[in-house]
């Protein structure tokens, strides 16, 4: 059985180590916070916060306290606030250990596309280009195929790139792949997924 969203998030949480400062993207990456367990992980929200807490209880929402997805959140005892220039200074400066983010496409060179579909979807890259260029380790979490059954793990991305050669590890519903010299290497298969099934669902070169 391929992994579901929560299992993918739980697997991504295994990538995070005690003491790390981490940025989680929108969608499945946001769920990663539910699976860090006892590890001391500090979450960065790139609109200007370290030490992001959980969503507030109803009635306790504060319009001055939101995450990068514009959702209301809460602070923790260890929280610090800062402006956008400092926030991206710490991202660009390599102070954030890892980013977990979603993707429309990734390829075997570690290129990532997740910000626009020409002529269709023009929302913008937000902080994604800065994150993939600056953080220590980029972990992509996404479905292996799109809703038409086509591979999202490609030889070469077809959509405009968010970053070139930036992805370290790809976690999908079928398993875990690393970007290595010459292509992608299978690190792990989801329970019940065969290597052949992984290869069949992947357009990229598997080495």
């Amino acid at each position: 059985m391929p992994w579901d969203r929560n299992q993918m998030a739980a697997r991504a949480a295994e990538e995070l180590e005690d003491g790390m400062y981490v940025n989680l993207g929108i969608g499945i990456p946001t769920l990663v916070a539910n699976y860090v367990g006892d590890k001391d992980i500090t979450l960065q929200s790139e609109n200007g916060m370290l030490g992001m807490g959980p969503f507030p209880y109803e009635g306790e929402e504060d319009p001055d306290l939101i995450n990068a997805g514009k959702q209301t959140i809460t602070e923790l005892p260890k929280t610090a606030y800062f402006d956008s220039a400092m926030s991206f200074g710490m991202i660009r400066g390599g102070k954030i250990a890892a980013a977990v983010l979603g993707a429309m496409e990734v390829d075997e060179k570690g290129d990532l596309a997740n910000w626009m579909i020409p002529g269709k979807l023009v929302k913008g890259m937000g902080g994604a280009m800065d994150l993939v260029a600056g953080v220590g380790r980029v972990i992509v979490v996404m479905d292996h195929q799109n809703k038409h059954g086509e591979s999202k793990v490609l030889k070469t991305c077809t959509l405009p790139l968010t970053g070139a050669g930036v992805v370290n590890r790809i976690i999908t519903n079928l398993g875990v792949l690393d970007v290595v010299e010459g292509g992608l290497k299978i690190v792990e298969l989801a329970d019940g997924v065969t290597e052949q099934e992984m290869r069949d669902a992947t357009e990229a070169t598997i080495v």
Binding site: F55, P56, Y57, E58, E60, E61, P63, I66, Q71, T72
Partner: peptide, 11 residues
């Protein structure tokens, strides 16, 4: 001070 996406957790 409008909130764009009110998001809460269960009580």
């Amino acid at each position: 001070k409008r909130i764009e996406k009110v998001t809460t957790r269960p009580a």
